[in-house]
Design a binder for these strands. Structure first.
Length: 214
DNA sequence: CACCAGGCAAGTA
DNA sequence: TACTTGCATGGT
């Protein structure tokens, strides 16, 4: 069986098992950008608390957050962990949008996906996964997001080698699936859901995994 | 108590 | 190039 057929079969099994996941839980593109940084190695529940703090403070907005003193910003996002590091990363992103695009978020996100990706990766604190999450979920362009769960699920089911890197895994999907924002959105969300419930680092419950037997 | 969560950068050899 | 470590909170 070819890789494309295999990937579509995986998707079908996960979708049949879990149904639609309704990602990304963000109300605006800006909120998605912020969430993408805050969720780095952090539980989403904690990220929601941090975002709620920002919203209550009225600074969940490009201009308002840009004017916010760094220590105050760090205080608001405290529940998401690494708050000093992440406050700096948020400010790096804000500075880039302000300096390179005059604070025009739509212009920033409206660029060609490849150009946007290069710009994002040039910002301190934004790596491949964060950049791709932003492009897919905020800019709504068809880039496949790879995360730790994607790697773990595929390697545990012997669909890829253990030492596959980000780029290789991403190419596996983009070279074998139609470039469809809705599909990439749902697929990534389903892989995360699968990882959480059936493919954790320790104590895996592969007995009930919807992908067993592939 | 230990381990983990929708990573990334900086330091070391 | 290939590891290792720091960052830090809250849930299980």
């Amino acid at each position: 069986m070819g890789s494309g057929e295999m990937l579509r079969q995986i998707y079908q099994r996960l979708y049949d098992h879990f149904g639609p996941q309704h990602w990304w839980p963000g109300e605006t593109p800006f909120e998605v950008l912020v969430g993408a940084i805050l969720t780095q190695n952090a539980n989403w529940q904690n990220v929601e608390k941090a975002i709620a703090n920002l919203r209550d403070a009225g600074v969940l907005d490009l201009e308002k957050m840009s004017e916010l003193p760094p220590d105050l910003l760090a205080g608001y996002i405290r529940p998401s962990g690494y708050y000093n590091i992440k406050a700096g990363r948020l400010r790096n992103l804000l500075a880039h949008i302000n300096q390179a695009h005059g604070g025009d978020l739509d212009a920033f996100l409206g660029q060609d996906a490849a150009v946007l990706r290069e710009e994002l990766l040039s910002i301190r604190g934004i790596g491949p996964e964060t950049a791709d999450s932003m492009i897919l979920y905020a800019a709504q362009k068809p880039v496949f997001v790879v995360d730790a769960y994607t790697h773990r699920i595929l390697s545990r089911h012997d669909l890829i080698a253990e030492d596959y890197g980000y780029q290789e895994i991403q190419e596996l999907f983009t070279d074998n699936l139609a470039e469809d924002v809705a599909l990439f959105n749902e697929y990534h969300a389903l892989l995360v859901r699968t990882g959480k419930e059936y493919c954790r680092k320790s104590a895996p419950r592969c007995d009930r995994c919807p992908l067993r037997g592939l």
